[in-house]
Design a binder for these strands. Structure first.
Lengths: 178, 178, 178, 178
DNA sequence: TTTT
DNA sequence: TTTT
């Protein structure tokens, strides 16, 4: 299909700490569920109603997986972009089932932490603003896109310790802008 | 949850003609499935692989349901925005199952037809340019947002007859900009 | 143009309190600027660089304008969806200029407050979760979509007083789900 | 700013063939303008009105620049994702001006061609269904994300020759999934 | 299971 | 002008 788009955008909160699995291939996957919620007034009763939706998220994107593992915790509010993917599996009773996940594939998807708890942010981190539009201007925002060149840094400390804004990626990337 | 977002954006093709159901409440729902597809080169074998994903779409938004019913057909390429919703149901064997749909709720979601078959719009159709920014400028694009004031127009002709670009909504809306 | 989409999604912080203007037509517009920021490592120097982008936002959507006026303040972190619109104007020296804004038109766009300061959220506000998928299920999230039926409630108190999550819209809507 | 998002999604038509420039750094930039259009019924006069918006797009993402150069032409309908960027410049009369562009930075953004002219893809092109969910499953869609490993393939033939759906990237990528 |  |  020449042109198709499959995109999910969520802003919500993690229901639990992320889980990390290592695949037979050696790839690591970080997964968690995210709650979104909406409320409305019932057309008939006039009462306010609310509905919470739970989304299963799986991160194959290595950079974003690392960030999720290190900084996302139960209750964290995040912005994420992924794609819809439905898989079939057999449950413990041998029944064939389907489940639809929000997946951030290798080199794809976005993740941004939206709560500022723990935010140190040393003075001077943002100095002068702007920035040109010059030829060397890379891009990226939040913990945007990963790069295929980056190797695992090995540190999967269980402790969160969210660093100050804009500094996180320093610990993760090498020299690829993102 | 004060701030949460649950949004799906798809560009893909309908696998079948839309189905129309009328709910006990009298509301009508239009549903169909949309295929998106992606291809990549296998990391190990070097072969090109492709995967098609099927999305079940349900439109409760009355205006967009009408448009889908009238103009979408098997094979139509569309842009749509909806939200993820997972529901539980019992299958014919009494097994409890879950299914995740892309839902366009009342007054919500977007739908745009992307193929121009039947479309007037000859060469130069888009070269009109400009347009003001007056104070009375409403908004809307494609078949954007429906309005709660609009009642069903009654005409659910089975024939498609896609009109020229941008004219469709004339047949559907009254005086609400969208 | 049969199918076109013009959408901007921003997550960022307000640079100042919102400004409210009343148009000759009587419509009110709420406007503010939003900062987004990205950082990357310079390809040549290896230094971390940052660039902040400022977006001018104008809200014509009445419901969302009210919410912005009441709850958004300098520094607030928000999620918003709007469209790009470029307008021409004459500056004070009579020079013809163009400016591109992110606009939330009547009945269009989305706005969600992402910081929880002031968040009371009485216990029991979220009880039982879920919610069915019944025929009366409206939609909406955050302070999603406005409705053409709602009139201005008249209260434009300068004081913020952000209420507990999910309660805000109670003060604004009547019986339209959103 | 720890969590910020700056995203533009457009579906529209190119107003002219893309222009290609080479920067002093050697990087190439492909730029063009895209028209989106919306129509609505005037609240006062009841007349249908239409407004076309023109967006200046600049592609620094090397892969997507190549694709745009090869396959996008005046009139092409595309889906794209980029970010807003405002730059200052001096016009020919020495007046300082600002312009806001939609930018696809290196390794960022998305581009999908939505018209099927020249497209092989006969009937039944999208009815293949399924596709696995293997552990080695990469991702990507359309001409999603570029990779830093890919070098310019050198062929910037001025002739379009759009190939059949999903095959295009074969000519561009090496072994990076996208 | 989250959050408001 | 924000935020980290």
């Amino acid at each position: 299909m020449a042109g198709s788009v499959n995109k999910v955008i969520l802003v919500g909160n993690l229901g639990r700490d992320p889980e990390v699995r290592t695949l037979p291939s050696g790839d690591r996957v970080v997964s968690f569920s995210v709650a979104t919620s909406e409320s409305w007034r019932d057309r008939n009763t006039g009462e306010r109603r609310e509905r919470t939706e739970w989304h299963n998220v799986s991160i194959f994107n290595e950079n974003l997986a690392k960030i999720a593992e290190q900084y996302c915790r139960k209750g964290s509010k995040i912005y994420l972009e992924g794609q819809l993917q439905t898989r079939e599996y057999q449950d413990k009773d041998g029944i064939q089932r389907r489940a639809t996940d929000v997946v951030l594939q290798r080199f794809r998807g976005e993740l941004a932490l939206l709560d500022s708890r723990g935010g140190g942010a040393g003075a001077g981190d943002y100095e002068g603003g702007g920035g040109g539009y010059g030829s060397s201007s890379g891009g990226g925002s939040s913990f945007g896109r990963s790069s295929p060149m980056e190797r695992s840094s090995g540190d999967r400390a269980p402790a969160p310790a969210p660093a100050g804004g804009g500094r996180l990626s320093d610990q993760l990337d090498d020299d690829i802008p993102f």
